[in-house]
Amino acid sequence: MFKKSIPKFIIYDQKYDQNFLNIDNQDIYSINGHKYESNYFKVNQKSTESTNDTVLRESYESFKNHNKEKIIDALLLNDFEYGYNSTSEFIIQSLFKENSIFTKDLLNDIFISNFDNKIIIIGLLKTIAHFEYTDISPIGPTMALAALSYSDPEVQECGIRAYENWGHADSLKVLNKIKCEQEWLSQYINQVIEILEEELIIYGTTCTKN
């Protein structure tokens, strides 16, 4: 895909006054990693930022630079088959063990930046559906919810599958409120709702991890 090149401005030794209300978003650690990544300003030295913040941001940047393309390539090239492991799953699981916080942030970043790429979105959803709900929250359920409002039924289905696999009580709350245009998806949602109700009531348990 041909990407439009955007000029980047990198500023040297710029000091930003902390009394500016949130203009530099120093209070947040955004999905972009670097607070200026979506801005044309790039600050090399952030004198008003604490050392810990700098280390955190730089660590995330390094983690992201190392792993983002690897994950995207695996998602694009993989053939996903329900019931079986995939290459991207191995990669993401291994990154999760290395640093679950950064991995979740990176998955969030990839999800949003590639939201129009069905292949990547489906791959991500199929992968996170195999994580435990508590491990992948809140970004996992956030992605699954976003999937439910996607225009493509395949993506919507992946969102429902994720909720089914997680089997959390939260899944029931969400699925009870969702309406799908496609009849087969509506039937599937109803099936999943019945299953979750049965599991929670009869077995006192749900499928939390597959």
């Binding site: 329900y82 019931g83 079986y84 492991n85 599958r161 696999n165 597959n210």
Partner: peptide, 12 residues
């Protein structure tokens, strides 16, 4: 037969 050889219990 299908499920017993799988790595994950996914709806199919």
């Amino acid at each position: 037969a299908l499920a017993s050889g799988a790595n994950h219990i996914d709806t199919f």
